[in-house]
Structure formats: C-alpha cells, structure tokens
Design a protein around this nucleic acid. Structure first.
Lengths: 228, 228
DNA sequence: GTGCGCAATATTGTATACAATTATGAAAAC
DNA sequence: GTTTTCATAATTGTATACAATATTGCGCAC
C-alpha cells in the first residue's frame, strides 16, 4: 500500500494531506494516528511522520499523548466556545478591512469559490463543501492582507471543522444559509461596516447551530479513511 | 560544555529555554542556531534539538531555511505592523473580559508581577523586565479564561519582543510608562470598558514608540549568548 | 467465572549512521 | 588583482537501530 507517486513526499506535504483529511471529515475526532500505519500508507519513514504529527499538534488538530501516540483532537465544549470567541474577535474586523481593499478580480474569485462550494454540496460531497466554506473565511483574511491574522484564522477554521464534526446537529442545513452570498454583496459594494456586521451575525449563527451539550461521531479506522 | 543537570532535558524544555533566551534578548534576531552547537551546549542529540527548533518555527520565533539551518526570526516592518494589528483585535476585548472576572487574589498576583518587573528594571536587567512585562499581557488572557486567545497572545508577545529588539528607539523609557499600573486599577474596580480602553491606548503607545523604518541590532555568537 | 499478575507484543522515544546539500577555500585562468 | 572552478569540509535531511514505555493476552489464584 506504499505510495509510489513521483513527488518525494516531504513532511509539509504529509501535513497538508492529513490536515485536509481531517478538515473534510474523512478522519474523525478521536481516530488514532499510529506512526507505523501512516508511514506505511504513504511510503515514508517515521521521521517524516513524526514531524507532520508535531505540526498538526501545534495546529491543535492532533493531540499527542506521551508514549501513547497521536489522536485526532476532540475539542471539549469549553474549547469549542473559545474557538468561536476568538473568531468573533478576529473575523468581523478583518472582513471590514477586506471590504475596503478588495478588487473586482478578487470579488470574482470569491464568487467562484462559493460556486465550487455549492457544486460540491450538490454532488453530495459534504466534506469537500465544508472545506471550501472554511477556505472562504481564510480568503477574506488574505484579501485583507493580514498574514498573521490569516494564520490564526486558518487554525481556528480547522478546529471549527472538528467542532462541527462533534457538535453539529442539523447537518443537512449546513451551507444552505446564504450568509456567504450576502457577504460577497457587501464586499462588492466596498461596504466595510456591513461586511463586519454580516460576519458577526454569521459567526453567531454558526455557534447557535451547534449543540454544545453532547458529542456525536465515533473514531474510524485509519486505513479505511485514507484510501488514496 | 555539555549540560550535566539532573533533569533529562526534553524537547519541550529546550524549547522553553530557547524561547526565553530570545524573549530576553540574549539571542538577537538573525542569530544562526546550528543544530550541533545547541546539541552540544545542552548535551542532547540533534533529534531533540530539531523538534525544539520546529516548535520555535511554528511560533514564528525562528525561521527555518531548507538545507541551510535555523535563524532567530527578523520580522519585517510589514510583519511588525501585522502583529500589533492582531494584538489590537485580541487584547482590548480580552482585558474587558478579564476585568469582569478577576478576583482579588488575582489582582494581587498581577501587582506582584509588576513589582517584579520594576525590580528587574531597577536591577538593570532589561531583558528580564521586558519578559515580565510580556507575561503581564498573557496573564490577562489567562484571567479572562480564554486559553485559545491566550495561546495567540503568547505568540504575539514573543514576536513583539523580536520587533522591539529590531525597531525600538528609546529603550530606556520602555517600561517607565505606568500603563500597566493604570490597567490594574481598572481591573481592581472591575471596570471592563475602562480596561478595554486603557489596553487599546497602551498598544497604540507601543506601536508609535517603534521606528518602523530601519532595523538595528546585529546577530551575536550562539555560545556567548547561551552561557548557562 | 472473575480478577490479578506477569510475560509477550506492539508502539513510541531517542540516538546515531549515512545521504544530500550547502558553505569554504585554495589553485588556476584571465 | 580579480574571478572562476573544483575539491574539501561542514551542516542539514532522512532512515534505521535500539531503548523505554505502554498494551495485550494468557495463565493462575480465588
């Protein structure tokens, strides 16, 4: 089952592959990420795997238990609240900045992004749709030209994906909301205050659509999840 | 020169030692952190050193250049602005929350913290004083009971220390300002809005006291800086 | 039949050996 | 004297071997 593709597979690349798998809900919270397993699946040595797992741990996507291995993180209710608290501080103001700076070309790119998201949803690929809807938020930080804040939001988006896996209730309705469409309208009009307000309420909507009482979802086999 | 202390020196511990050295300006921006050098100084293998350097890179305190080694980061002017932009979004609101939650005991702890800072300054240990003044900001996030935001602020404080090393002009006046004292007064009175406003202007003061045009400071020898 | 203890197994932690890449410096060409 | 070239040295990247720790499962006592 070793990977014989042309690219040499560096630690960064492996990190991205695992991050994407987690973000798209192919790897469920709690799944054990054994070093030998991953090493064999991707045809690399444990050295590379350990570096990637350490990076994932820094992003809080993976929990490293000493002498016991790596597990896909399972954010607590407390942690879930904190993540959205942090997003509430960072994202609305960033949307404001983005609205002032955005170019027509970037508006078109954002729109294309949303179209792809709707396409994935229509194709039944919920994981992909969730990933793309997260990227939308990251794109906004990039448009605001705030790399530091972008890095924070990137982490918060990934962790939000874990939170959604654990606490989301009405999955079907996930991206039915047209919050992103409304945001694009505000961006196109360079209406900073409106973009800020829309983002603020969008995040509030997200939190209230979670059931922060009991966890769902169960760990799944690693090999099955990473079928290449 | 190998370290023969009792503790086994894990990667996390080495990370903390290097982080502190950078934060206290014993390691200047641009200093090369050779793996063999550090390994010998602390009496560990390169495996441990590499893990610690990777963690430092994730915190943006160290820049890893492929095949060329690790260097203490040298934030650009653009990056400096971004760091304080992020702090402006996170810290004032966090100070607000902290003011509402703080206990009398915690007020006393904060006061003790400031006293230690003044003590270090009086003793001429500017590095230590700078470190303690950074910890003050982190303590506030801890009091607000926001671990996620605390982690972000911790990173931003460390990076601010690098920025100060590169762009600070009137070093002597660094902590002469009594901004922290004023904040404590607001905390003790549980005055959220005032704490938020004070933090906001404190951060503005910090930015305006930087000269974001030309860099100062030069790399220094690793061995000399890490004299244990 | 249930629980405990211990050996066997599997997995992670660390050090080291080797490969790949880059930095250094001396000699030759101009 | 300056620049180029190439061999040597130094440093980082990766894989693997071994040590330390945790997990598993069998056998025994109760």
């Amino acid at each position: 089952m070793t990977d014989l593709s042309s690219t040499p597979m560096t630690a960064d690349l492996l990190f991205e592959k695992l991050e994407l798998a987690i973000h798209e809900h192919r790897l469920a919270p709690g799944t054990k990420l054994g070093e030998d397993d991953i090493a064999e699946v991707y045809g690399v040595s444990r050295t590379i795997v350990r570096a990637a797992l350490q990076s994932l741990a820094h992003q809080r996507l993976v929990e490293l238990k000493r002498n016991r291995g790596a597990y896909v993180a399972q954010p607590s209710v407390q942690e879930a609240r904190e993540v959205f608290e942090a997003r509430a501080l960072l994202e609305p103001r960033t949307a404001y900045s983005a609205a002032l700076r955005i170019t027509d070309n970037q508006v078109a790119q954002l729109q294309a992004h949303i179209d792809a998201e709707h396409g994935a949803l229509h194709a039944g690929d919920h994981g992909r749709a969730l990933y793309l809807s997260g990227q939308f938020h990251i794109d906004i930080a990039r448009i605001a030209d705030q790399h530091t804040i972008e890095a924070f939001i990137t982490q918060l988006i990934s962790r939000s994906s874990l939170i959604i896996a654990l606490y989301w209730q009405r999955r079907a309705a996930i991206c039915e909301s047209h919050a992103h469409d409304a945001l694009i309208t505000a961006f196109a009009a360079h209406d900073g205050p409106r973009a800020e307000e829309l983002m603020k309420s969008h995040l509030l909507d997200l939190v209230t659509s979670l059931d922060l009482r009991n966890k769902t979802s169960a760990p799944v086999s690693l090999r099955a999840a990473l079928s290449l």
